[in-house]
Each structure stands twice: as C-alpha cells, then as structure tokens.
C-alpha cells in the first residue's frame, strides 16, 4: 500500500517540483500539469503496476488526487 503511494508520489513529483503534494489535493486544479499529463499518468500507471486503464476507468474522480489514484490502483489490482 505504502509502496504504491510512494511510487505514484515519485512520478507526480516530477511535475510538481517543490510543491509538497497532499494526499487529497486536486492535482488538476493546482496549475502544474498540462494537457499531456492525463496520458502520461495513464502510461505510467499501466507500466508501473501492470494494469490496463479501460474506457470505463476514464473518470476524473479516479485520478483527481494522490489518494484517489492509490485507491484506483488497489481496485485494479484486485481485478487482475
């Protein structure tokens, strides 16, 4: 669990530089990411955790915060 969060945090930190991202902060409203971020995030999650992000998963609520992404990965890992 912690491991998943650490990995995601590390990936996100590349976009947020000095900002210490809180677990429940809205990633998309902080002004750090551009239009390519959603695609980069999906690629990262698929490669890092061996999951497939399906069309049904394309709900912003799955990716809005660090906590949401961690829960999403946990849910997907159970599906696998």
């Amino acid at each position: 669990m912690e491991n998943v969060e650490m990995k995601i945090r590390k990936f996100l930190s590349r976009f947020f530089r000095k900002h210490e991202l809180q677990g429940n902060e809205d990633i998309f409203s902080l002004g750090f990411v551009n239009s390519l971020f959603a695609m980069q995030l999906v690629m990262f999650l698929e490669k890092e955790f061996g999951i497939t992000v399906d069309t049904k998963d394309l709900d912003l609520e799955n990716f809005r915060t660090l906590n949401a992404i961690v829960s999403f990965i946990d849910k997907k890992k159970v599906e696998v």
Binding site: S35, L36, A38, M39, V42, T55, L58, D59
Partner: peptide
C-alpha cells in the same frame, strides 16, 4: 470512442 469528455485528453492526444 472512449468516454464523453475523453476525446482530447486521451483519444486525440494518443
């Protein structure tokens, strides 16, 4: 194709 609203962020950009 994909979801309503995902046309640019996921479909077109890919």
């Amino acid at each position: 194709v994909g979801k309503v609203g995902a046309g640019l962020s996921h479909v077109a950009l890919a």
